[in-house]
């Protein structure tokens, strides 16, 4: 992504999307997962590829492609199952729940023909669980945002962690 000259319309879009992502982060950290789920289109593809440890000369092999085994490869139904699971009160991996803090920034937004926007953000996700467990996940998200009934919805999200072996017991939190 190249930085574009800052015209009024681009600044306006950047602000609007930054507010969208700030709201999303608060929804997650305040455990308002039903409202978070509503940020996604019904045909969403929520994807986290594996990140391989590969020589600099082979950058095309660093992320596992769609069709290979991925860490997340969710549709709306899988995402809904993840959220509804928590509501049963018996999703023991998240009950008691993780305490999370999503810091999202470095937004770059690229409008696409047809009204969709490609939006790339970097994140740090801090998680504290039970008494003393801590994880820090860092990475970036590549989203496709679609204007739907006056609101932005996430139609596609690719999450790339900056980890090879994930240094956590599980990924029971949302990215």
């Amino acid at each position: 992504m190249e930085m574009q000259p800052a015209t009024d319309s681009r600044l306006e879009l950047w602000h609007e999307l930054m507010q969208f992502y700030i709201r999303e982060a608060w929804l997650l950290d305040e455990r308002r997962f039903r409202e978070w789920l509503d940020l996604f289109t019904d045909d969403v593809f929520y994807f986290m590829p594996r990140r391989l440890n590969i020589h600099r000369s082979e950058p095309e092999r660093e992320l596992s492609p769609v069709g290979d085994l991925a860490i997340f490869e969710d549709d709306k139904t899988y995402l809904t199952m993840r959220v509804e699971r928590l509501e049963t009160g018996m999703a023991w991996g998240e009950d008691p729940p993780s305490r999370t803090r999503h810091l999202v920034g470095n937004l770059v937004a690229e409008p696409q023909p047809g009204g969709e926007v490609k939006a790339k953000t970097a994140f740090i996700l801090y998680r504290s669980h039970h008494e003393t467990e801590e994880n820090v996940f860092a990475g970036y998200r590549d989203d496709v945002l679609r204007p739907t009934a006056g609101e932005w919805k996430i139609a596609r999200r690719t999450i790339v962690l900056d980890s090879n072996v994930i240094l956590a017991k599980n990924l029971s939190v949302f990215f």
Binding site: R50, D68, L69, I71, E133, N164, V165, I166, L167, A168, K169, N170, L171
Partner: peptide
């Protein structure tokens, strides 16, 4: 296909 790799405290 894979693997997914992670570290568990077990």
């Amino acid at each position: 296909l894979g693997p997914i790799k992670w570290l568990e405290p077990v």
